[in-house]
Each structure stands twice: as C-alpha cells, then as structure tokens.
Design a protein around this nucleic acid. Sequence first.
DNA 1: TAATTATTTAAGCAAATACTTAAATAATAC
DNA 2: GTATTATTTAAGTATTTGCTTAAATAATTA
Lengths: 123, 123
Amino acid sequence: MALELSCTRAEADQKQLMRCRETLGTNSEAISEISKILALAGNETRLKILFLLYEEGELCPCDFADILEMSVPAISQHIRKMKDVGLIVSRREGQTLYYSLVQNHNEILENVFIKIQKNKKVA
Amino acid sequence: MALELSCTRAEADQKQLMRCRETLGTNSEAISEISKILALAGNETRLKILFLLYEEGELCPCDFADILEMSVPAISQHIRKMKDVGLIVSRREGQTLYYSLVQNHNEILENVFIKIQKNKKVA
DNA sequence: TAATTATTTAAGCAAATACTTAAATAATAC
DNA sequence: GTATTATTTAAGTATTTGCTTAAATAATTA
C-alpha cells in the first residue's frame, strides 16, 4: 500500500504540481457532482431512457420496458438512480407513473442530446 | 427470463412506442459511442485527469500519481482506457510519456470542463 | 555491459454494478 | 371486500470495475 508519491525526473515542475492540486481543490465539488451525472448517463440503457425523455417529454416504466426489451424491474432500478440524483421526476396518473426530465435544464445532458441528434445516421 | 414486453394500460400509445424504437435505431451508433465517453468521464479519477489535461496541456503518469495521491499503475490503467478510445494521446520525451487531450476537440467533454470551471468555489 | 528510472502489463481480489426472480405497494375495477 | 394492473423493492448472482502487488518494457546513465 506504500504510495509512490512521485518519480524523480528532473523536469518535474513543482509549481505545476501545486497548481494542479489547487485546481482540483477549488473544483472538487463540481467535479464530484458532475462525475456522478456522467456516470449515470454513461450507462447505455440509462442514456437511452434520458434521450427518449428528451425527445418524447414523458414515458412510463412499462413503455421503456417495451421499447428497450428489458424487464420492468430492471428499468425501474435504472429510473430510481436517476430520480435519486434529481435528473428526472415523476407524475402519477392513476396506476401509471410518468417520468420526465427535470426542467431546470441540465446543460451537460442537453449538450449530449444535441450531440446524439447531430450524429444521427442519415437513412 | 420471460420478458414482460408491455403493460396493458389503455393509454399505451403504439405510435409513440414505434417512434421511440425508431429514434433509438437511427441514433444507436451515436448513443453507443457517446455512452462510452460518458462512462469514462463518469469516474472521478478519470474526470480529474481529463480536467487537468484541459487546464495544463500535458502531464505524465507520475505527475498524476503525485497530484492524485494514487499509485502509478492505477493511474496508468485509467490512462490506457482513455487512450484506447482516443480521448488522449501521448508524446515521448526520453523515459517520460506526456499525455494530452486529442485536439479534434470533443464538444461534450469541452462542455463538461466549462461547466466545472463555472461551478468553481469562490475562495 | 549493468543499474536506474518511467511506464506498462498482468494476475488477483474486493467492491460496485446490472441484471434476475419473488414479494411488497399502490391504485383501479369488480 | 377481492382481483387486477403498474410499479417498486428486496434478495441473490454473475459480470465489471478499480485497485493491489509483482513482473515486464523501454529509455537513460554509469
């Protein structure tokens, strides 16, 4: 577990290393928060769910299960993770829960959606 | 393993479901590719490495090990994953390998970096 | 040449992840 | 009330992930 804290190369720029540590320090909260969002969107199933919500407005777990050909509990568990961090919200209509993207629009995800649309395969 | 392909609610909009499947079909390549990038950036250590490269231009594995207080092999393995998908490239100078972001600038990551900078804690 | 240094690679392992099936909630209909 | 439907939750499991330590490359230096 002994940590090799650095190499001994002459070129190691101590000022740069200090500056880097400071950079991480002042941005640590943003990095932590954003990495969590990216990790969620980094799962293909969840990215599909998010993108479909972006395109369609709202859908229910059973729609996703049908569209993605996955079990309802599998979908539900993906949905919960995204709901837990506040990426999506639900609205109940009878027995059905409709999910949608939170409307304090997330710039990072929006950019991802736009990028997906741009890269669309031209049929 | 029997898949519940859908619920039986009256409101299920068959046209919408077909449209969703088509949306995923025409965008499948972009979704697959982008989800891989997001998954890489969704790890806090890797996001720090990427952000530092964005801020500093280039750094070597041993710098990262020092800055992040992690072992060199751990850093090296994170770096390999990002190199494998073409997010970063290396340049050798003697024994040292300097890594940097690929310069066909990745819009999604760039937006992430800008977002991190914006959310910086005001000291 | 051998020794040192920077890095990568490989093997092993603990923790996290994404599914499965079964059971529990919640709302509606009979 | 019971039955049905939509969804969530829980428990179990196989796969993936991110580290560890040790060994292998690659370049430099003596």
